[in-house]
Measured scan of single mutants.
Amino acid sequence: RHRTTFTSLQLEELEKVFQKTHYPDVYVREQLALRTELTEARVQVWFQNRRAKWRK
């Protein structure tokens, strides 16, 4: 699998949602996936990684 490189616009969208909730439900993730043109799975993994980073 290749590494997904996020654009600054995608990161902006993702971070905006992360500020509101660290655990977006499937509906929120789907909406975010559509807005960022990423798959829902990529969005889910981004949140997992972002939460790990936040905990440190």
Rank of each mutant, 00 (worst) to 15 (best):
W46G: 02
F6N: 03
F18H: 00
L38Y: 00
R50H: 04
L32G: 03
E37S: 13
Y27L: 13
D25L: 02
F6G: 03
L38F: 01
T7E: 04
V45E: 15
F18Q: 01
L34D: 09
R42L: 15
E15M: 05
K56S: 15
L38N: 03
R50K: 14
Q19T: 09
R3K: 15
T39F: 00
W54C: 11
V43T: 01
T4C: 10
Q10S: 03
T5F: 03
R35N: 04
S8K: 15
E40W: 05
W54Q: 14
A41T: 14
E13K: 03
V17K: 03
F18P: 01
T21G: 06
W46K: 01
H22E: 05
T36H: 09
R42Y: 09
R1A: 04
P24Q: 03
E12K: 09
T21E: 06
K20L: 08
H22K: 14
V28M: 13
V45C: 10
Q48N: 10
P24H: 00
A33T: 04
S8L: 12
R29Q: 06
R35C: 06
E37M: 09
F6Q: 05
R50Q: 09
R3M: 15
K20M: 07
F47L: 03
W54P: 05
V43R: 00
A33I: 00
A33E: 05
E37C: 11
S8I: 07
Y27N: 14
H2C: 02
T21C: 08
T5K: 14
P24D: 00
V43S: 01
R55E: 11
V45G: 12
E13C: 05
R55V: 09
W46P: 05
Q31E: 09
R50V: 04
H22C: 05
Q10F: 00
E30S: 12
W54Y: 11
D25P: 11
A33D: 01
W46F: 08
Y27W: 05
E37Y: 06
E15L: 00
R29W: 05
K53D: 15
T36V: 09
F18K: 00
E13Q: 08
K16R: 12
R42I: 14
T4Y: 14
V28T: 13
Q48V: 10
H2T: 11
T39M: 02
T39R: 03
Q44D: 15
W46C: 01
L11H: 13
E15G: 01
L11R: 08
K56W: 01
R3D: 12
V17Q: 11
E12S: 11
W54K: 10
D25C: 04
L14H: 00
H22N: 05
R3F: 14
D25T: 07
L34Q: 13
W54V: 08
K16A: 08
D25F: 00
A33G: 05
V26Y: 10
L9C: 10
V17W: 04
T4P: 10
W54S: 13
F6T: 06
T36R: 02
E15C: 03
L34H: 06
L11W: 09
L32H: 06
R1L: 10
L14E: 00
V45N: 14
L9I: 08
F47A: 00
L14D: 00
T21N: 07
W46A: 01
R51G: 02
W46E: 00
R35W: 05
V28H: 09
F18G: 02
T39E: 08
L38I: 08
T4W: 08
L34G: 11
A41N: 07
T39Y: 02
R1P: 10
A41H: 09
T39H: 03
L14W: 02
R35K: 15
P24S: 02
R3H: 15
R55C: 11
R3G: 14
T7L: 02
R50S: 04
F6L: 14
V17F: 07
R29S: 06
A41F: 05
E12Q: 07
V26T: 13
P24R: 01
L32T: 04
V26N: 10
V43I: 09
V28R: 04
V17E: 12
Q10V: 06
V28I: 09
L11M: 11
Q31G: 10
Y23W: 11
R3C: 14
F6Y: 13
F47T: 03
L14M: 13
A52Y: 07
Q10W: 00
V17H: 03
F18A: 03
A52T: 09
T4S: 14
R1K: 14
Q10Y: 00
T5A: 08
T5G: 13
L38M: 11
L32R: 04
N49P: 02
R42F: 06
R50N: 09
D25N: 09
T21W: 06
H22G: 04
R42Q: 15
R29E: 04
L14K: 00
L11G: 05
R1H: 14
L11I: 13
R50L: 01
K20S: 09
F47D: 02
H22W: 06
A41Q: 13
A41D: 15
P24W: 00
T5P: 10
S8H: 08
Q10H: 01
Q31K: 10
Q10A: 09
R3W: 10
L11Q: 12
R55M: 09
P24M: 01
E30T: 09
T5N: 12
E40T: 10
T7A: 05
V45W: 13
K16C: 07
E13G: 02
L14I: 00
F6C: 05
T36K: 00
L9Y: 15
R35G: 04
L38V: 07
L34P: 00
Y27G: 14
V26I: 12
R1Q: 05
R29I: 15
L11F: 06
N49G: 09
S8M: 11
H22V: 04
W46R: 02
N49A: 11
L11S: 09
W54E: 15
L14Q: 00
Y23A: 06
D25V: 02
F18Y: 07
L34E: 13
R51I: 03
L9R: 14
A52M: 12
Y27P: 06
Q10G: 01
T7Q: 03
R55W: 06
A52H: 08
L9P: 10
V43N: 05
F18R: 01
T4Q: 13
T36F: 11
Y23H: 12
R42D: 15
E12N: 11
H22T: 05
R55N: 14
E40N: 05
Q31I: 03
K20N: 07
L9F: 13
E15T: 02
V45S: 15
Y23M: 03
K16H: 09
R42C: 11
K16P: 01
L11N: 07
R29T: 14
P24L: 01
H2V: 10
R35H: 08
T39A: 07
V43G: 00
L9N: 15
Y27C: 08
A52N: 12
E15F: 00
L34S: 13
L38Q: 07
Q31T: 08
Q44T: 12
W54I: 11
L32F: 03
Q44P: 00
R42T: 15
T4K: 08
E40A: 10
D25K: 03
S8C: 10
K53W: 07
W54R: 07
K53G: 12
V26M: 12
W46N: 02
L34C: 06
E12F: 07
A52I: 10
V28D: 10
F6E: 10
E13L: 05
V26C: 14
N49V: 07
R42G: 10
L38C: 08
E37Q: 15
E13N: 00
R42S: 15
L34K: 15
H22L: 05
F18C: 00
A33N: 01
E30F: 05
R51C: 03
H22R: 10
R29F: 04
T5Y: 08
Q10M: 03
T36P: 00
A41S: 11
Q19E: 11
T39L: 03
R29H: 02
V26H: 12
T4A: 12
E40M: 10
L11A: 11
R35E: 05
T21V: 06
E15Q: 03
H22P: 13
F6S: 03
D25R: 00
K16L: 07
N49H: 09
V17R: 02
T7F: 03
